[in-house]
Nucleic acid binder design. Structure first.
Lengths: 202, 202
DNA sequence: GTCTATAGAACGATAGAC
DNA sequence: GTCTATCGTTCTATAGAC
């Protein structure tokens, strides 16, 4: 009788895959890509390196999946933040969520935004930024339609805001994130949108 | 009598170094890092690969020097653009110069801003962006002092503007740089500065 | 009994220390 | 320039599912 993978076995494999991913995510958040050696991931997940390779054909595949996993969390947070309120509130919520999370988990944010990675992961980075851009562009387009913002190319403004956020945060992530980092970014954003009242952080 | 490098020999070596650098710069502008193999650079410069290695200990050293060479040109252009006029004019000139040059030499701009490179060159990229930031921050600080701009952290705003510019341009560099790319960016910038009149591109 | 999944050693490449 | 440590990856022996 030929061997047939049973449902139970399949479930165990699936859960093992999840554990490996979780271990890799944790390592990424703690030590960046440097700490994500296959051996370290395997050890953290409590499996052998061979088992990691059963689930992921190569390290690049594993890392790309880890990246997607973490990014989808970030996108989800930001989308939730953008769900309600007027244009200003939505955009401010997006910025504060994005930046707040980054400053709370600087090592992870650095890995997502700026740490040198190979070209495959770099491509995922573009997807990441594009997703953020879309969330912001939607809010802006909405604001323009309702006459709350001056006419503008929503995609272009959104792209610029994503770049501004990333650039602003990379410095602080390396060390000193002054307490004004986020308020500064929010003020900048509101002005850039052409929102009539830039608002104050106090 | 020991061998002594004559002045003439030294001069020839220096000029050869310049030719190799020029060849590498040209290749970088045409084909990015991919085209910058040591062999291709040597061929373009009309020397043997051995001569390239005589001048540069490793490919990384060569590339870093090429990067610095190109970047210093960009910085110089931008500094020249920022030399005169009021705050608005200066900042607009910086953005238009930066973006205009990028759109005219997209392959090179992509290599400078976004193409995946190894960590050593990535470090140079930070230097590059920091230099841009300083030029802009100076103009902003000046504007704030003169009361032409609302109070703000000039460094933070400048960082955000550099990020906005880079992000805005990376998309177009990959393909379609619409004719509105630069005006959009200028409008965005002026609004973000809090300049009372955002200005129009028409 | 047959075949699979697993752990971990072994291998070649490469980067960093000295 | 040499050497060592470490990395990603492959291989193999074993335990266990079928």
């Amino acid at each position: 009788m030929p061997y047939r993978r049973t449902e139970k076995t399949q479930a165990r494999l699936d859960s093992q895959r999840g554990e490996i991913l979780a271990a890799a995510v944790a390592l990424l958040a703690e030590t960046g890509y440097a700490g994500c050696s296959m051996a370290a991931v395997a050890a953290r997940a409590g499996v052998g390196t061979g088992s990691v390779y059963r689930q992921f054909p190569s390290k690049a595949d594993l890392i790309v999946e880890v990246f997607r996993e973490v990014v989808s969390r970030e996108i989800a947070s930001v989308e939730a933040a953008a769900a309600q309120g007027d244009v200003r509130e939505r955009v401010v919520a997006v910025i504060e969520t994005f930046a707040g999370r980054a400053l709370k988990a600087p090592r992870l944010a650095y890995a997502l935004l700026a740490e040198p990675v190979d070209a495959v992961v770099e491509a995922e980075r573009l997807v990441f930024r594009r997703a953020f851009r879309e969330v912001i562009a939607k809010a802006i387009a909405d604001g323009v339609t309702r006459g709350l913002l001056p006419p503008q190319d929503a995609e272009a403004t959104a792209a610029a805001l994503v770049g501004a956020g990333a650039e602003t945060l990379v410095g602080p992530l390396a060390g000193n994130g002054g307490p004004d980092t986020i308020p500064n970014l929010v003020t900048f954003t509101l002005r850039a949108l052409g929102s009539s009242d830039p608002g104050r952080s106090s």
